[in-house]
């Protein structure tokens, strides 16, 4: 089943043609990895999926991004609601300088949830969902910034889960973490696909190979090849994909 359909998506930053006609389908409850060298447009593409590029000066977007067949760039779309459906986890862990509890509850409060008991319940559920509950349940009121990097990132995932998104975008979520923390997050991701559709940008090709079901290779603003991850890493069709993943350039 297809969750997000991208059709002929172009994006310009001023003179810079950053995305050149991307056509890509993101499948429901699968992990799709976006790989490619720096500046290839993979992060830019990721950000178009929840309109995080909107505030960039001089940005111009054409083409379509359909979430459940609804154009997210349509005139009547409420960006707040879109981002509730399509959550995002960033490159370096960025919990807010408040308590663990308030971090997890932040999104709920944005969307107007006020009942204390309900918030308590959802906070616990999302912290469990992000596999961090056992580590923090006794210190929910302590500052989130006192957590380790890996815990912070899982808290950020919990924060995203709290608003019950359907799609989770991850922009190099483990690039600032040590191998053990990375492993925990990767473990978590495969758990997440039971409920969520995950799109992850990663510089680590082994990571893409380990965790994703589908992989798309980006180069110079174009989507070069998209296929099952096994296929991409065993026998890519495009020689540019082959050259990139075997380290022959980049």
């Amino acid at each position: 089943m297809t969750k997000i359909v991208t059709e002929n998506l172009h994006l310009h930053y001023g003179e810079n043609h950053a995305l050149r006609g991307i056509n890509l389908n993101i499948l429901t409850n699968k992990i799709t990895a976006l790989i490619g060298p720096s500046g290839c447009g993979k992060s830019t593409y990721l950000k178009t999926l929840n309109r995080m590029n909107d505030n960039v000066p001089n940005v111009k977007i054409s083409g379509q991004v359909l979430l459940d067949s609804e154009d997210i760039y349509g005139g009547t779309v409420d960006v707040t609601k879109l981002r509730k459906k399509v959550g995002m986890v960033f490159q370096s862990p960025n919990p807010f300088p408040m308590s663990i509890y308030d971090n997890a509850a932040y999104g709920l409060r944005i969307h107007g949830v006020k009942k204390r008991l309900l918030i308590d319940e959802i906070v616990e559920r999302s912290l469990r969902g992000a596999a961090i509950w056992d580590e923090v349940k006794d210190r929910l009121k302590t500052p989130a910034l006192a957590l380790s990097g890996g815990q912070q990132q899982r808290l950020c995932i919990a924060r995203t889960l709290a608003v019950s998104p359907e799609v989770i975008l991850m922009d190099e979520p483990t690039s600032a973490l040590d191998p053990i923390s990375t492993m925990k997050i990767e473990e978590l991701m495969s758990e997440l696909t039971k409920q969520y559709t995950v799109v992850i940008v990663t510089h680590n090709m082994q990571q893409a190979a380990r965790i994703s079901d589908y992989t798309a290779f980006f180069l110079l603003g174009e989507m070069i090849e998209y296929d099952e991850t096994n296929r991409i890493f065993a026998a890519p069709k495009n020689p540019r994909t082959e050259n990139y993943i075997t380290g022959r350039f980049g």
Partner: peptide, 21 residues
């Protein structure tokens, strides 16, 4: 840090909400 603003925006916070909280 910019990352706080991004984090809040990513959760759907409006600009004013982000400024306030």
């Amino acid at each position: 840090p910019l990352s706080y603003r991004e984090g809040a925006a990513g959760l759907g916070a409006s600009k004013w909400y982000m400024i306030r909280t």
